[in-house]
Design a protein around this nucleic acid. Sequence first.
RNA 1: GUGCCUGUAGCUCAGUUGGAUAGAGCAACAGCCUUCUAAGCUGUGGGUCGCGCGUUCGAAUCGCGCCAGGCACACCA
Length: 554
Amino acid sequence: MIDKLIDLISGAVKDYTGAESVPPFTIAVSAGESHGDFSTGVAFNLAGALQQAPYDIASEIAQRLRPHTDLIDRIDVARPGHINFFMSDAFWQRGLRYILERQSDYGKNDTGRGKSALIEFVSANPTGPIHVGHGRGAVIGDVLSRIMAASGYSVTREYYVNDAGNQVLSLGYSVLNEYYRINDIDRTASMPGEYQGRYIHSISRTLDAVLPPAEINEENIRSITEFSVKSILGDERRALPDSNIKQVLQKFNIAFDTWFSEKRLYMDGSISGVIGELEKRRAVKYDDGATWFLSTLYGDEKDRVLRKQSGEFTYFASDIAYHVDKYRRGYDVLINIWGADHHGYLPRLRAALRALGYDADRLAVMFVQMVRLMRGDRPVAMSKRAGEYVTLEELIDEVGTDAVRFFFLQRSHGSQLVFDIDLAKRQSQENPVYYVQYAHARIASIFGYALTKGWDIDKVDLQTGYAFHNQEKRLLAHCLIYPEVIKDIVVKREPHRLPYYLMELVGVLHRYYTDTRVVGDDRTTGQRLLLMKMVKIVLKNALDMLGIGAPEKM
RNA sequence: GUGCCUGUAGCUCAGUUGGAUAGAGCAACAGCCUUCUAAGCUGUGGGUCGCGCGUUCGAAUCGCGCCAGGCACACCA
């Protein structure tokens, strides 16, 4: 419906400018009644190019819109150049019907039709439980995936498993040493292992599931390491009950399509392959017994090691191979969601991709800023090595999946966020998410009551000739703008806009509920029930996008 | 030192391809349930949009310079 309005405006703009294309502009629900139902600032966007006052441009556009008035009652031009639309009852009727007919499809669009997208997120090292910071990236990636899928993209959600290299080896040693300790075996492995915590203890206690006690020693460190990784990921049958990653993500309402193993890149020769390719392209040097990528030739500030003196590949080398693999799989859109602490890493990855002849601009990286955990006034020390940190699982067990997701989504990913655990726990019943969910439950409750009065929401028909009052137009306007919000989130890659949209919509709903009786007067009950149904559809669809429940009862 | 992110109400944060009186939640205060869920609604107080200069008809938004906080600057991942 709003796209009709957008088309009308675009037509009028073309009519006036004589140009083929129209600069991007937005339609917004107006700030107040005097500003009409919807507004656009398209004249401001044109002012620069046309070298005219926005107000004059707006007037010209409005003139050319006036003939198309079956959907619009009145068009106002307001200084300094806003165009305000007062919509007709016919528009509202058609809008209501439009949403009711589409139901769970309402809000979907086809801007990504025919395009595929790979979204890589979380990718936490399988050396310990995932923590709160991972949770933030997890929700942002998940919601972006949902919204892009609803926009027609064929979306693949991928988790890159760093199951190779020194850190997982260190995990294996940590487990082995713990095994020695709890069994009073007087041996020390050649490496101490840097991980501690309850989960190390738990894994060591189940080691005998893979190896007979006599073989639990350093000679089998590879098996021990592999078992430890599987336990943490959740791939082992006897996976940790208290911290396996897949289980926690499931609890957090997040699912992945693919789990990409770094180890695989070692096994199948991909890493040597890309290094060979870089050599061919003369982007490699040998120095100090190591193999270097000449990344300075491609915009990085210093050259980077691909293969260490020891003969091992660096993480960077395998990561190049991983991203080459992504490109070869042929996605139209590649999105990585990384912790902000990795931002300095991007230039070298882009350099490598460019050196290999790939279009590095096709890879978009969203940097999610840190979560600072507080307990009241006290910052919570986050020491992964010491095993002293709040896991994502602990947080969602105490605060609830819906609330944690909503809280993480309310902030733009570029801002650090302070998460006060005490506050989140204490306010678990007054969290903003309940404000939104309550609206959904309230509407469900109205329908229940209506049924007792003989109104079955599934059997109410749309009437023509019902004149919506102002608050109802506000409800309609907010519901009708929803598809634009979804499109906007995809374009800007800013999922946090959706919670804000919901807060606004729900505010209008709660006020309407307080002021207007839905079930009562025979002349109005039917239409008002349909309005409630419309809002419920939008709430449900938007909450689905957020991966948050839409309860019928609270 | 260099690069990236951030600085908006007491707190946590929206708002930045420049535009209508700068917003929300929480916290504070005062009201609203014989009527569809009060997890709600209404009202009040609360702001030098870090500071300065500049560009502009117009700046929280753009440019430059400061100040403050976070993160990153490995043959770790």
